[in-house]
């Protein structure tokens, strides 16, 4: 590209002529993420004793990986997968580049940092390109969570429904909506094709792509809903296991 006259004077963080409340969104996002990260870190690292109650296994601890030589919380062995999936997710990238890195904090608002900007072309951010591998792993974890959700209806061999069962079911549904609305998956399943109608195979892929596209249109929504639901499912187990509350059996 041509180098042209520099049209833009370097501006300070937050410099803008916008007179609306542009800072509300990044502030809310930063607050929401921070609360979740603090909570998940605390739960994953320091409370390995409260991971299960009755048929409910906390999603932070699923699948259960027990290794003799591992002396730390088993959640660490699992959590890196969803954490990595979300950290490299196209929606979350937008959200935290704005809310944490303030580059830019909002549209047409001055950014943070100098002129060394390289975007996602250099380490570490170039690794964002491996998002699809986290997707593969996240699907594996999701399979365990589906198993857990089904198991959450199994009260000592008897079918039953507790509030926790419904929370688990909702959570895994939301997580599926989020996971299968993934941009990388959308590409792999059909987006990479240039012609949808060219063969029976591509027609099938087009159908799947269309469904994924529907989910993808609300990727942000499912990202937040599933983030909340997974945290809430864990919190529910934590409160049960800590005898703070009791699970209500619906039938």
């Amino acid at each position: 590209m041509n180098k042209v006259e520099i049209a833009v004077a370097p501006e300070k963080l937050g410099a803008t002529a916008r007179n609306d409340n542009w800072w509300v969104e990044p502030a809310l996002v930063a607050t929401g993420f921070t609360i979740f990260i603090v909570y998940a870190t605390w739960r994953g690292l320091f409370e390995p004793q409260y991971f299960e109650w009755g048929p409910y296994l906390s999603p932070f601890y699923s699948p259960r990986i027990l290794l003799d030589w591992w002396h730390w919380s088993p959640a660490i062995l699992v959590l890196w997968v969803p954490a990595g999936f979300r950290a490299t997710c196209y929606y979350y990238r937008k959200a935290y580049y704005r809310a944490y890195f303030l580059d830019p904090p909002a549209c047409a608002v001055g950014h943070l940092g100098g002129d060394k900007y390289c975007g996602e072309t250099t380490f570490p951010f170039v690794l964002q390109n491996l998002h699809r591998y986290f997707f593969y792993l996240a699907v594996a974890v999701l399979a365990f969570l589906w198993y857990d959700a089904i198991r959450a209806f199994d009260f000592h061999g008897q079918f039953g429904v507790g509030v926790g069962s419904l929370i688990f079911l909702a959570n895994v549904v939301f997580l599926s909506f989020y996971t299968f609305g993934c941009h990388a998956y959308r590409h792999l399943v059909g987006g990479k094709l240039d012609c949808f109608s060219c063969s029976a195979r591509t027609k099938t892929r087009f159908k799947i792509w269309s469904v994924v596209t529907k989910l993808n249109e609300h990727h942000m929504l499912w990202a937040w809903v599933s983030l909340f639901s997974v945290g809430f499912a864990d919190l529910y187990v934590r409160l049960l296991a800590g005898h703070v509350i009791t699970d209500i059996r619906l039938f």
Partner: peptide, 27 residues
Amino acid sequence: LGFCNITKCCTEVCPEEIHITDNAIIP
């Protein structure tokens, strides 16, 4: 393309409501 950090302002301002980030840049 790698310089784009998908912060989506392009999509926000597009008067034709093209989903620039989701449908063009990310693919």
